[in-house]
Lab assay of single mutants.
Amino acid sequence: MQRVNMIMAESPGLITICLLGYLLSAECTVFLDHENANKILNRPKRYNSGKLEEFVQGNLERECMEEKCSFEEAREVFENTERTTEFWKQYVDGDQCESNPCLNGGSCKDDINSYECWCPFGFEGKNCELDVTCNIKNGRCEQFCKNSADNKVVCSCTEGYRLAENQKSCEPAVPFPCGRVSVSQTSKLTRAETVFPDVDYVNSTEAETILDNITQSTQSFNDFTRVVGGEDAKPGQFPWQVVLNGKVDAFCGGSIVNEKWIVTAAHCVETGVKITVVAGEHNIEETEHTEQKRNVIRIIPHHNYNAAINKYNHDIALLELDEPLVLNSYVTPICIADKEYTNIFLKFGSGYVSGWGRVFHKGRSALVLQYLRVPLVDRATCLRSTKFTIYNNMFCAGFHEGGRDSCQGDSGGPHVTEVEGTSFLTGIISWGEECAMKGKYGIYTKVSRYVNWIKEKTKLT
């Protein structure tokens, strides 16, 4: 034993070699072989497995989906700052455009905790909710729209109204504003409101030439003092309507412009014939205590009207009353817009006519005020429907199939267009061939041609 100890002390290297040989010859039971080890760690190889990531292109799944990435790591994937920024906006807080917040056709661009709407022409605001041009839906104005110097929408209202708090709607500024039905039992019968379409306001006024200088022999019209197929109006439903009495009662109609003036057809009036105007009328054979009678003290036909040349060209006249009318729910003026808007309103496509005229061709006159909704007829169809001249200051309205029309005794009465609950004068009943005849239409004086003249002559002093 002493000898062994001496050998170990003198030859430590020998001992180490012996131990190493023993270990190498022993069977290893701690580690699995290569094949079995792979069965336990069965993990798919990654895209760049075996390579240094710093030297390969980034992978979106590896960089940002398996674990949260930084902007720089995302930049490695896209290799483009702009594309990385677009991805980053949604990656950080989701897609803010998912709810489609942009209105009126706006395009949404996502941002971090926010979004941006790219608005089409005519709109602005956070969600493109603000109209900035009158060309689109009248700028959301209830009545009139004008573009300011910086191309912003400025709404306005006709006389007797003021802008509401929203700067879009119009509200009454006087007790009985024009064009409004205020009798409670008839307010439910107000005709369907007309909503502004998209309009090209630059070209809204037709490029028409008034044929002022045409000389033409007097034409022989049949029954051209021209509501057939209409309905009984309720008291106060058309408070701007008046009836004219002269040699015979209810020979023509008219509309209240203001307390002192009536507008009617020029062919209705004769110099030297006494005319009485009755406002607030409903049943011409009954006294309903809503009527107001006034005498006409002055007749002003349009300066281009000449019955000797043509009885229905420039067929418009103004009547001055001896005493002002007292405005109330049964006696209310009709609204008159400017030339541009009167023309736009007419193009809405349908209007209402009213009167006490004959209820059928050569038949009896109506006792109760009649009204009828009539569609506008395109000019080409209008011209083809008659052998008589249709001037540019006239328009056609009615039904091709016949059966409904204005008729004798309705002449001078109103053709009105309702705009968001307020009625505007767009025409004056003038003439036609018979009444409600198939293929024939009622012919009306186009008020847009005469609004400046009306307003100039009827100013209240």
Score class of each variant (00 low, 15 high):
Val4Lys: 14
Val4Asp: 12
Ile7Tyr: 11
Glu10Pro: 13
Pro12Cys: 15
Ile17Leu: 14
Cys18Arg: 04
Cys18Ile: 13
Cys18Leu: 14
Leu19Asn: 02
Leu19Ser: 03
Tyr22Gln: 12
Leu24Trp: 13
Ser25Gln: 13
Glu27Tyr: 11
Cys28Gln: 05
Thr29His: 13
Thr29Cys: 13
Asn38Val: 12
Lys39Trp: 05
Ile40Met: 08
Leu41Glu: 03
Gly50Phe: 05
Lys51Gln: 15
Glu54Asn: 00
Glu54Gly: 01
Phe55Met: 14
Leu60Arg: 02
Met65His: 09
Glu66Thr: 05
Glu72Pro: 05
Arg75His: 15
Val77Tyr: 09
Phe78His: 07
Arg83Asp: 10
Arg83Val: 10
Glu86Ile: 12
Phe87Ser: 02
Phe87Ile: 02
Trp88Cys: 02
Trp88Asp: 02
Gln90Phe: 09
Cys97Val: 03
Cys102Trp: 02
Leu103Glu: 13
Asn104Arg: 05
Gly105Leu: 05
Gly105Ser: 10
Lys109Leu: 07
Lys109Ile: 10
Asp110Arg: 11
Ile112Lys: 14
Asn113Gln: 14
Cys117Trp: 01
Trp118His: 14
Phe123Ser: 06
Gly125Tyr: 03
Leu130Met: 13
Asn135Asp: 15
Lys137Arg: 14
Asn138Lys: 07
Arg140Glu: 11
Cys141Glu: 00
Phe144Lys: 02
Lys146Tyr: 14
Lys146Asn: 09
Asn147Lys: 12
Ser148Phe: 07
Ser148Leu: 12
Ala149Thr: 14
Asn151Arg: 10
Val154Cys: 06
Cys155Asp: 00
Ser156Glu: 11
Thr158Val: 14
Gly160Phe: 02
Tyr161Lys: 00
Leu163Lys: 04
Ala164His: 12
Glu165Gly: 10
Asn166Met: 02
Lys168Asp: 03
Val174Glu: 09
Val174Pro: 02
Pro175Ile: 06
Gly179Tyr: 01
Arg180Asn: 02
Ser182Ile: 08
Ser184Phe: 15
Gln185Phe: 14
Thr186Asp: 15
Lys188Ala: 15
Leu189Ser: 15
Thr190Lys: 12
Arg191Met: 14
Arg191Cys: 06
Glu193Phe: 08
Val195Glu: 12
Pro197Tyr: 12
Asn203Lys: 08
Ser204Arg: 13
Asp212Ser: 09
Asn213Cys: 04
Ile214Thr: 15
Ser217Trp: 09
Gln219Ile: 14
Ser220Ala: 11
Ser220Glu: 11
Phe224Ala: 11
Phe224Pro: 15
Gly229His: 07
Gly230Glu: 11
Gln237Asn: 08
Phe238Tyr: 04
Phe238Cys: 04
Pro239Asp: 00
Trp240Asn: 00
Val242Lys: 00
Val243His: 07
Lys247His: 09
Asp249Val: 07
Ala250Val: 10
Phe251Ser: 09
Gly254Pro: 01
Gly254Tyr: 01
Gly254Asp: 00
Val257Pro: 00
Glu259Pro: 08
Lys260Gly: 04
Thr264Leu: 03
Ala265Thr: 04
Cys268Gln: 00
Val269Tyr: 04
Gly272Glu: 08
Ile284Lys: 08
Glu286Cys: 06
Glu288Leu: 06
Glu288Val: 06
Thr290Ser: 10
Arg294Pro: 01
Arg294Ile: 02
Asn295Lys: 11
Asn295Leu: 07
Val296Glu: 00
Pro301Asp: 03
Asn304Ala: 10
Asn306Ser: 05
Ala307Val: 07
Ile309Pro: 04
Lys311Thr: 06
Lys311Asn: 05
Tyr312Thr: 03
His314Lys: 02
Asp315Thr: 02
Leu325Tyr: 03
Val326Leu: 11
Ser329Leu: 04
Val331Cys: 05
Pro333Gln: 04
Cys335Met: 00
Cys335Tyr: 00
Asp338Lys: 05
Lys339Cys: 09
Ile344Ser: 15
Phe345Asp: 01
Phe345His: 03
Gly351Ser: 08
Gly351His: 05
Tyr352Pro: 03
Tyr352Phe: 13
Trp356Lys: 09
Gly357Glu: 14
Arg358Ile: 06
Gly363Thr: 11
Arg364His: 10
Leu367Tyr: 12
Leu367Lys: 14
Leu369Asp: 04
Tyr371Cys: 05
Leu372Arg: 11
Arg379His: 12
Ala380Ile: 10
Cys382Met: 03
Thr386Glu: 07
Phe388Ile: 15
Asn393Ile: 02
Phe395Pro: 01
Phe395Thr: 02
Cys396Pro: 01
Phe399Arg: 05
Gly402Ala: 15
Arg404Tyr: 15
Arg404Phe: 15
Cys407Asp: 03
Asp410Thr: 15
Ser411Ile: 15
Gly412Cys: 06
Gly412Ile: 15
His415Asp: 00
Thr417Arg: 02
Gly421Gln: 08
Thr422Ser: 04
Gly427Tyr: 00
Gly427Arg: 00
Ser430Ile: 12
Glu433Trp: 05
Ala436Gln: 12
Lys438Thr: 14
Gly439Asn: 10
Gly439Ile: 03
Lys440Gly: 14
Tyr441Asp: 00
Lys446His: 05
Lys446Met: 06
Val447Ala: 08
Val447Glu: 00
Ser448Met: 03
Arg449Cys: 14
Ile454Pro: 00
Lys455Ala: 06
Lys457Pro: 02
Thr458Ser: 08
Thr458Pro: 01
Leu460Thr: 08
